[in-house]
Nucleic acid binder design. Sequence first.
DNA 1: TCAACGGTTCGGCCGTCGCCGAAGCATTTC
DNA 2: GAAATGCTTCGGCGACGGCCGAACCGTTGA
Lengths: 259, 259
Amino acid sequence: MVSGNTIAEVASLIGDAARANMLSALMGGQALTAGELASHAGVTAQTTSGHLGKLAQAHLIAVEKQGRHRYYRLASPEVAHAIHALMAVAADGPKRHHPVGPKDEALRLVRTCYDHMAGRLAIALADSLTGNGYLLLGDGAGLITDEGRRFFCDFGIDLDQLTRSKRPLCRTCLDWSERRPHLAGQMGAALLDRALGVGWISRREETRALRITRAGEIGFADKFRLPSDWRIAPSETLMVRRLPGSSIPAAGTTCRSQD
Amino acid sequence: MVSGNTIAEVASLIGDAARANMLSALMGGQALTAGELASHAGVTAQTTSGHLGKLAQAHLIAVEKQGRHRYYRLASPEVAHAIHALMAVAADGPKRHHPVGPKDEALRLVRTCYDHMAGRLAIALADSLTGNGYLLLGDGAGLITDEGRRFFCDFGIDLDQLTRSKRPLCRTCLDWSERRPHLAGQMGAALLDRALGVGWISRREETRALRITRAGEIGFADKFRLPSDWRIAPSETLMVRRLPGSSIPAAGTTCRSQD
DNA sequence: TCAACGGTTCGGCCGTCGCCGAAGCATTTC
DNA sequence: GAAATGCTTCGGCGACGGCCGAACCGTTGA
């Protein structure tokens, strides 16, 4: 009754097929033009314009003018989170439970998920980080160990910088193609950002799938000590890895939560 | 485009004021009758019936017949999670950012949040658990230490039992009245359940607020070693508590994630 | 300056859906 | 059995909102 009104407004904005398609497209993490969104939604430019106006007014998306183009992106990680949560509900529903993920092999290998990586590479990275004692993974989030902190610093990611933000540092995200967790949150975003920065991966046009460069092939395997078979769909049974006693991070630096 | 259709269906179901109010009411965690939901939504019985039918068909809620009543509840924790996420987006929106939570003092003290406790007591419990080294709280989730495992077992909660389920064991939830994290997930549900079971708290009619019994007053303070001032709204600055080196749980037992 | 292009605004059409009154079942109570 | 209660089904009304064609701005490039 009290906040019900507002959640209804938000949900009803997402609850239109055309808008839902646009938002889903924006879950790729890149800003898209109105035209691109129109084609994703399958409606005309005028209609799209109307939809985008509403979404922007409700602060679900943000706009940026650039020449004669207008680039739209999700307004906040909270919005991405909400859409993700709705996807989870939708997947649970009456429909078949087994279409399990993208047919496109490239998408399964590595793709963007809003602002971080998903797919087998992302899972392999998460496994590697936990296996080497850099990260403790829990139910939907993780803690970075002191060793992990040094590792990331060495990789060019300044965690202290990230900590200043209010946004959760280290979350996990369930991979819909592989049903395994991978890194999200600020850590996940920083990892994607850095990997793009050093040219280990690059974006492709018109798809969320990412390309792994030659440098990336070597770099990831070397720096993260990936097993040689990481491209194979990981078996569920490999999930459990006992980790040796490692130091515990200062509580304060990771004590942020959001839901 | 692929799963967009279905998320639109789900969102549009939530995106009606009457239905949103019903779902919000069900976030209290108790099953409610159609009549109660009708009064929460402010519409007639017929209209309510229609809404409930749609929600049930989409598996957002579940029904249970009991005599001439029909009890409705949220169908799954995923649904609760999605609604919560929508609330977070709605709260962020263009509106005032500062109405901050319930006026009702009882609600601020302790209340249900779907299937677990929220409010100052819940925060104090989470603080106590982390402070005593039973729990490591991260960004949205936590890890239970071996000591914590023993503690919970001693309190009558069998974690091994809980672990069998696929549902996340230990998540956190951001308290909207205090803006601090408290325990959710299976742990949170078990804690509420056990506290009700031993009579430390009891439900009230017509509200999500909980009542702390005399036994609870003593029990919580004693067992969880709560500070004497836990009823006072906790200051943000108390959040950081350095914890001594404590043992790390086996990775496998907590390696479940969902989002 | 003019044409091309991306995007938005306007106006009107049409379908969908929420709403309630009335009637119909089922269960409980007297 | 009859009345009361809780809930659902049916039917029809009304409004909100998505859709597109056409016209309108602003930027870009020749």
